[in-house]
Design a protein around this nucleic acid. Structure first.
Lengths: 336, 336
DNA sequence: ACTTGGCACTCGGGAACACTGAGTGCCAGA
DNA sequence: TCTGGCACTCAGTGTTCCCGAGTGCCAAGT
C-alpha cells in the first residue's frame, strides 16, 4: 500500500516541516533530500499520502504538513531514537550528581530536561506506594501533640502533626517508636495497612487509643499522597510558538490531575511513551505531543517524567533526551 | 503644580485604561466621569499631565495612556486599597485551613492568590534563618551512613544524608541525638553556628570526628538554603496579554534569583511594596508590576509573597488581595 | 485667568484591490 | 511508471484610499 519511496517522502516531509516550521512543497523536497526522482513524482506520492491521511495541506496551493497520523507512523516506523552525545551525557551526570536531597534531584532533573529539549519538562515525584519504609519518627512537640515523620528508601520524607487524645509521656512515645520501627522497617508501603492492623492488636490495652490516632494519620499520609506531586519547568520555551493554544497548555500544566494522566496512567513498562496531538486525553492539548518514560531505581518503576511540546517536534532527539535523563535519575536515586 | 482637577483627570485616565485596555480620549473621559467640565478643558489638563510625564500617547491622534510615573502617583496618592468582600475572606480562610503540611500551605496559598487576582502569584517559602529548631533527628541508614532531619518551628523539614568517617553503633548515635537536641531545641537558627561551636568542645574525645561530620552537614544545610525556594502559579493568566513580553516574563519566573529580588530584597517591613514597570530590577519585566508583602507568624517576617501582572493592573484590588492573603497565611503558620 | 466651542490637522486601522509566486493537479509523452 | 509542461488556485503582501477618533490651537465668553 505504501511503498518504500512513499515512506521516504513522508519521512522527508516530517523532517523538513519540523526544521523549517513551514509547509513543505514537492520541489524543495525533491531537491533537499536526494530522492532521485522529479518533483512531479513526489507530487503523486504526496497525493496518495494525503488521501490516506498522513499529510494534509493547510490550504490549496500550499505545501503539505504531517497529520497526527503521519507523525505516528514516523515515530513508529520511520525514525530511530537519537542518542545524546558523550558530552551531553557527561553534563547530565555531573549536574544530577550534585543534588543534595530528593527535592533537589527532582528540581534539577526537570530543569535539565527542559534545557536539553528546549521544551516543557514534567517530572513526577517518586511514588510513595512502591517504595519501602526506612524509618518512622515520632517527635514530641507539646503535651498532646507530636510530629510524625516518615522516611522512605527513596529519600522522601513525609511529615504530619498529630493531635493526641491523651497526654502521653515521652518514654511511652519512645517505646511506641521502637515498636513501630521494628514492625515497619523495610516494609513496602503497599503492605503497611495490613502490617498496621496486625500491630494494633499486639499492643497493650493502654496504648491503643494513642496508637490508633497515630496510625490513622500514618495511613492517611499514604493514601493522601496517592495523588502524586508533579513539577514542570521550561514554560518559556512555549512562548513564541503559536501552533499551540498557549493559555490552554499553561492551564493544563497547572492541573496536577491532567498532568498525571498525560504522563501515562501507570503505564506497563518503563518504555518510552509518545502521545501525539489528538491522541492525548485532554482537548486543550490538541496541538501538543508528550514524550514520557518511567524511571526508577533498579527494576521497579517509581514514577514518570517527560516533556511536552508542539506536535511539530524533533521526536528522535526528544526521545533520546527523555530516555537518557530517565536512566540517570534512576541511577542517582538508587545510589543515594 | 497639579491642582485637584488634574489629579482627578489622571485618576480617571488610569481607571479607564485599566478597565478598557484602550487609550482614553478627552471626550469619553469627560462623559463617563462626571468631572463637570468640557472635553476641551480636559484636553488642556491632559496636555499638562503629558508634559509632566504622567501620561503619554502611543501615537498622535490617539488617546492617552498612563506612564509608570503616572501609575506611581495613582498608587501613592490617588487610590485606596480595596478590602476583600466578606465572602472572599471566608473562602480564603477555609481553603487555607485545610492544609496538612508546610508544602501544602504554600501550594494552596500560591494558587489561591493566582485565582483571586487573576494574575501570576509568587510565594517564597518561610525562611529558615528566622525560625528556630524544634527537633533534630539522626536516623541510622547503614553502617556508616545516617540521615539528618531538621524540623523547625515553622513546620519546615530539611533532610540530608551523611556519610560517616567511622562505623558508629546505634546507641552512640542515640546519645548524640539526645545531646544535640538538648543543646539546640528552641535555638534560633541564626544562633546555631555559635551553639554548635560550643557543643563541639564539650563532647568526649572519641565522638568528635563523627560529630564534626554531622555538624558540618547541619551547618551546610542552613547556609545552603539561604537561597530560598520560591514557587509560582497562574502563568496561564499571562497568556493573551501582549503588553508584556511573555517569553521574558516566563523566563524570569523560572529564575529563582530574579524572583527573589522581585519580591523585595528583605524589605524593611511587612508593608505592601509596589514595583511598577521600569522600577523593578529586571529589564525583561519592563511591562509588568509587582505587588508584594511580607508575611509571618507573630511579629517577625518570615518571607514574602506577591503577584506579578501587567503594569495596567487594578492596583487597589490587587493590593487588597495580597494584603489579605499575607495576613491569613501568617495566622495559619502561627497556628500549626 | 480660566473655560469653552469651533476648526483644521494628524495618523492608525480597516476595506478594496491587484499582483506575485509557491504549489498543486492533470495530461500527454518517454 | 516516471517526467516535463501547463493552467489554475489562493495566501500573503503591498498599495491606495478613506474614515474617524483624537488632538492642538485659537478666539470668544464668563
Amino acid at each position: 500500500m505504501l511503498d518504500e519511496r512513499k515512506l521516504a517522502v513522508l519521512r522527508a516531509v516530517v523532517e523538513d516541516y519540523v526544521s523549517t516550521n513551514e509547509p513543505v512543497g514537492s520541489k524543495a523536497l525533491a531537491e533537499r533530500h536526494n530522492l532521485g526522482v522529479s518533483p512531479a513524482t513526489v507530487r503523486n506520492d504526496m497525493a496518495v499520502l494525503e488521501e490516506q491521511g498522513y499529510i494534509t495541506q493547510p490550504h490549496t496551493s500550499a505545501g503539505r504538513v504531517p497529520t497526527d497520523k503521519g507523525y505516528r507512523l514516523f515515530v513508529d516506523r520511520l525514525s530511530q531514537i537519537k542518542p545524546l552525545s558523550a558530552a551531553e551525557r557527561r553534563a547530565i551526570e555531573t549536574f544530577l550528581a550534585g543534588a543534595v536531597d530528593l527535592d533537589d534531584v527532582v528540581t534539577r532533573t526537570v530543569r535539565l530536561l527542559a534545557q536539553l529539549t528546549r521544551q516543557v519538562a514534567v517530572v513526577q515525584y517518586p511514588s510513595l506506594i512502591r517504595s519501602a519504609v526506612r524509618h518512622v519518627e515520632l517527635v514530641p512537640l507539646a503535651e498532646r501533640r507530636i510530629m510524625l515523620v516518615l522516611i522512605t528508601n527513596t529519600g522522601r520524607v513525609e511529615q504530619r502533626v498529630v493531635d493526641l487524645p491523651d497526654v502521653v509521656e515521652d518514654d511511652r512515645i519512645a517505646h511506641l517508636r521502637a515498636v513501630l520501627n521494628a514492625c515497619l522497617d523495610g516494609c513496602r508501603l503497599s503492605r503497611v495497612p495490613e502490617t498496621v492492623a496486625d500491630l494494633q492488636e499486639r499492643l497493650p490495652e493502654e496504648d491503643r487509643p494513642v496508637a490508633a490516632t497515630i496510625l490513622s494519620v500514618l495511613l492517611e499520609t499514604l493514601v493522601d499522597r496517592h495523588d502524586e506531586k508533579i513539577v514542570f519547568a521550561g514554560a518559556a520555551n512555549l512562548a513564541g510558538d503559536f501552533s499551540v493554544g498557549l493559555r490552554e497548555v499553561l492551564e493544563a500544566l497547572e492541573e496536577q490531575v491532567v498532568l498525571m494522566r498525560l504522563l501515562g496512567e501507570a503505564n506497563d513498562s518503563a518504555a518510552l511513551t509518545v502521545r501525539i496531538g489528538s491522541e492525548n486525553p485532554y482537548s486543550g492539548l490538541r496541538g501538543t505531543s508528550i514524550v514520557a518514560a518511567g524511571y526508577g531505581s533498579g527494576d521497579n518503576e517509581l514514577a514518570r517524567l517527560g516533556v511536552l511540546g508542539p506536535t511539530r517536534m524533533d521526536y528522535p532527539v526528544t526521545m533520546g533526551a527523555v530516555r537518557a535523563v530517565a536512566r540517570y535519575v534512576g541511577q542517582i536515586l538508587a545510589g543515594s
